[in-house]
Design a binder for these strands. Structure first.
Lengths: 221, 221
DNA sequence: AAATAAATTTAGACAAATCTAAAACATAAT
DNA sequence: ATTATGTTTTAGATTTGTCTAAATTTATTT
C-alpha cells in the first residue's frame, strides 16, 4: 500500500463514511464534512481520480474505487485502534480521544499498527462500539437496536453511539453510560418518547428520544 | 506552546542537535542534516526568525532563541518517549524505531505525551541511552565515555560501538551486550586493563581492554 | 419549455515548502 | 591586497492544498 498525504486520506475516509450512511455522496456533502469549500473538493476529486482511488466523471457524481475503499478502511482501522489504545492504556475519557486519533491515524508504518493491534489483544470494537477492521480490511458488522426499540423490561449492553458529538458524549458521561454499560428500559412516555432507564442495575435516569435514538444496545433474544 | 508545522519542528530539532555537537551551526550543516538544499534552509531561517524561534542575521550565523530551544526539547521529549514505547511495549528492535518516532514526534497533544510518559513509568532515557527531557524540558546531562573510563561502581547504558566488525558484534551478542544494555563496572585489573562488568544487572562477565575501548556508554552526572 | 435556483466546476490567485541558477558575501591563499 | 574558493542569500519557479468569484451544468418551478 502506497503512502498518501494526510489530506487525501481524510478525503477518502470522509467519502467512505458518507457512502455508508447516505449511499450517494455529493461534492457539497464532502465539503461540509471536511469543513472546506466545494471548489476545493472538486480539485481533490480530480487528484484522487488520477491516482485511481476514485471513480469520477464531472457533474456525474463519484464513488471510491476498490483501492480507495481499501485505503479508507486502513485509515479507519488505525483511527479506531489508536482510540482503543488511548482509552484502555492511557486512561483517556472516551469523549476526548477522537481529535488525537485524527492525527495518529496518519502515521504510516503498517508494522506499527499491526504490533499495536497485537499489544491491545486484537480488539474488535473501539471505545464507541464501532468495529475495527482487521489487517485485511474485514470487519464483522454488529447488529444494534437503538434504545427506543429495546423492549420495556429487557436489559441490553451498550454497543455503539450514533451521534458522537462532544455534547452527546458529555451527556452520556454524566449519566454514566459508556460502552458495555448494562441498561434496562423501565418506561417509555408516549407524550414525548422520553425514557426512564436503569443504568448499571443501579440508578434510574431519564433520557430524551433524541438520546435514545443514538444509543445502540445488544440484547439476548 | 503554539503549534508549528512538522517541517519547522524538524529544523528546530536539527539545529538543536547540531548546536550540541558542533557549537557553531552553519547553513550547510543544516542542509546536510535535513537532506535538503542550502537555499531552502535560508528560506526557513527567515521564517523561524519571524516567529522568534531563532536569532539570525544574514551572513552572520544563527542560533535558537530561548523559545526555539524550548520547542526543540519538547519534540525530542516526544521522539524519545515514543521510541521507548515502541521498544518496551510493542517489542520493536531498538534499530527500527527511529523512523517511526520521526513521525510520531509531531503529534501535537501535550496531554497525550504526558499520559504516555506516565504509562511508561517516567523513563529517564530512551532505548539508545539518550536522556528524555521532562515536561518542563529539563533533563540530566549524560556523559559518554568508553567502558574503560566508566568509574567503578557506576552504571551506564551502552550507547555506541566503535569497532563494528562481525567478530566484535558476535562477541557482544554472546555476552548479551547490545545498545541500551545497562552495564556496571565491578573491577579493573591493572595487569592487562581487562574488566569485570555486570550486564543487565545480572550476569558478571570479563572483557578485554580492546573490547572495553570500543564500547561506549552514557551515564548520569 | 422557459426561468429560476442550486450544485458543480473552472479560472486565477495565494501560502508553505521546496528547488535551480545566479548573485552577494566571507574566507583562505598566494 | 587581490584573487580564488566556498558559503550563503536572492530571484524566480514548482508542487500541494486551499481559496474566491465567475461560469457552467443540472434540477426545480411555474
Amino acid at each position: 500500500m502506497q503512502k498518501y498525504s494526510s489530506s487525501k486520506e481524510n478525503y477518502l475516509k470522509a467519502i467512505f463514511h458518507l457512502q455508508k450512511s447516505d449511499g450517494v455522496v455529493t461534492t457539497n456533502d464532502v465539503a461540509n464534512e471536511l469543513q472546506t469549500r466545494p471548489a476545493s473538493v472538486t480539485d481533490m476529486l480530480k487528484k484522487l481520480k488520477a491516482q485511481k482511488l476514485l471513480i469520477y466523471e464531472r457533474y456525474k457524481g463519484f464513488k471510491l474505487s476498490q483501492e480507495g475503499r481499501k485505503v479508507a478502511l486502513q485509515i479507519i482501522r488505525k483511527h479506531r485502534l489508536w482510540e482503543y489504545f488511548l482509552v484502555e492504556k492511557l486512561e483517556f475519557g472516551w469523549d476526548e480521544v477522537h481529535e488525537i486519533a485524527e492525527e495518529l491515524e496518519h502515521i504510516s508504518s503498517k508494522k506499527l499498527i499491526d504490533k499495536l493491534d497485537e499489544f491491545l489483544g486484537f480488539p474488535k470494537t473501539d471505545p464507541h462500539g464501532d468495529p475495527i477492521p482487521d489487517s485485511q480490511g474485514k470487519f464483522t458488522l454488529v447488529k444494534q437496536v437503538d434504545l427506543l426499540h429495546l423492549p420495556v423490561g429487557k436489559s441490553g449492553d451498550v454497543s455503539g453511539i450514533g451521534d458522537q458529538s462532544p455534547e452527546m458524549l458529555e451527556l452520556l458521561k454524566h449519566k454514566q453510560i459508556s460502552l458495555g454499560t448494562r441498561i434496562e428500559v423501565k418506561k417509555v412516555f408516549a407524550f414525548d418518547n422520553s425514557l426512564e432507564i436503569k443504568v448499571r442495575n443501579q440508578n434510574v435516569v431519564t433520557v430524551s428520544e433524541h438520546v435514545a435514538k443514538n444509543v445502540f444496545v445488544k440484547y439476548d433474544e
